[in-house]
Design a protein around this nucleic acid. Structure first.
Lengths: 203, 203
DNA sequence: GTCTATAAGCCGATAGAC
DNA sequence: GTCTATCGGCTTATAGAC
């Protein structure tokens, strides 16, 4: 029947089964946006490019997320839901400093992806609005989680410095690729970093 | 003499005295570019905006620097000529860790400008070419200088971690503006940071 | 040495058809 | 639910006049 639209329209509309699924489309856009923001940051990634990666047109991004800004906020929020390095598990272990420094080196290897939430933020600090969005996410998630996990005085300041150290190592090792932070130095780095982390996580 | 050009050409060309001075124009473009890259990074700053700040047209940027990329390379290089925090002076003092942590907090206050060379780099990591240029500058200047200033084993790795810490603190304190790294926490931060820095700069 | 004018293309966002 | 077509504005870079 010509007047009927949507998935009920079988027959010639095989690909519509996926194309007309709002939930799936939304998820596809989010996934594509995440990759694009990781690779190029907020300013570097374009809505057309993101849409193409999701197999849709750019217009749908505004339809589902209001704007590129709204899309960025949702990507950043979901990518920073839970702690990666200073997790409740690593923080409660007796050898937590060693565990954390080891985890930090692992997730900042050139091809690692676990710390994507942070990486998106770091690659987006050229844009003022993106920084504001990132600030809200970090304060409400990571700062809060890590502070609560640390006991002793100045927990908030120690948590903030731990995040700073993580951000700095990620930039210099994963993004910039300093020789002295290469994988072939992991042995020395693990020892040095463990020392630093111990100062922050041990009361 | 009719054949002579430049400032010697007085008379009706009052404003030409400045406008037709290639050296001054070059310097004006560099200064304007530096401000723009600090505020918006490589991708965020436009050549028109930079040219306007120098009182010239965008075309001259390509004339003097070949391209926006060439301009960026020159700005980044001049802005990172000499060390700011880990200077020969601070590193040779007996209480170097305390001095360095104090200096770091000072140059990462919200309105501070001393660490601009680093800030330009951090705001530009969304662009691949900008990162390559920044990497070359950091390796050839800061990594080299700081490593030479540190004695003892693993000097290169300790230097790289010190730069990572500086970069991380600058991002979280000056760019993101985390509450826990605010100026009202300077007393605690100075103590905590001093501890960390001591682990890196003391053999 | 510096200008105006313009090429060629990408940006985010929107109107309206189906 | 998704499309095409398009708007207005931005981008870097270049050609040619003076």
């Amino acid at each position: 029947m010509p007047g009927e639209k949507g998935p009920a329209d079988k027959g010639p509309a095989e690909k519509d089964a996926r194309r007309r699924d709002a939930t799936a489309t939304r998820a596809a856009i989010l996934a594509s946006a995440r990759s694009a923001f990781i690779a190029s940051g907020y300013e570097g990634a374009g809505v057309r490019e993101i849409a193409e990666g999701a197999g849709v047109t750019a217009m749908l991004i505004n339809r589902y997320f209001g704007s590129k800004e709204g899309l960025f906020a949702e990507v950043l929020s979901t990518a920073n839901q839970r702690p990666i390095i200073a997790t409740p598990e690593t923080l409660s272990a007796p050898d937590r400093a060693a565990r954390i420094s080891k985890a930090l080196l692992k997730v900042t290897e050139p091809e690692a992806t676990a710390l994507d939430g942070f990486l998106i933020m770091l690659r987006s600090i050229s844009n003022e609005r993106a920084v504001e969005i990132a600030r809200a996410v970090v304060e409400s998630h990571h700062q809060k989680n890590v502070t609560e996990a640390l006991s002793g005085p100045d927990a908030a300041e120690r948590a903030a410095l731990l995040m700073s150290l993580v951000a700095g190592v990620q930039i210099m090792r994963q993004v910039v690729g300093l020789d002295a932070l290469g994988r072939d130095r992991d042995a020395q780095l693990e020892r040095l970093l463990g020392d630093l982390v111990a100062r922050l996580v041990n009361e």
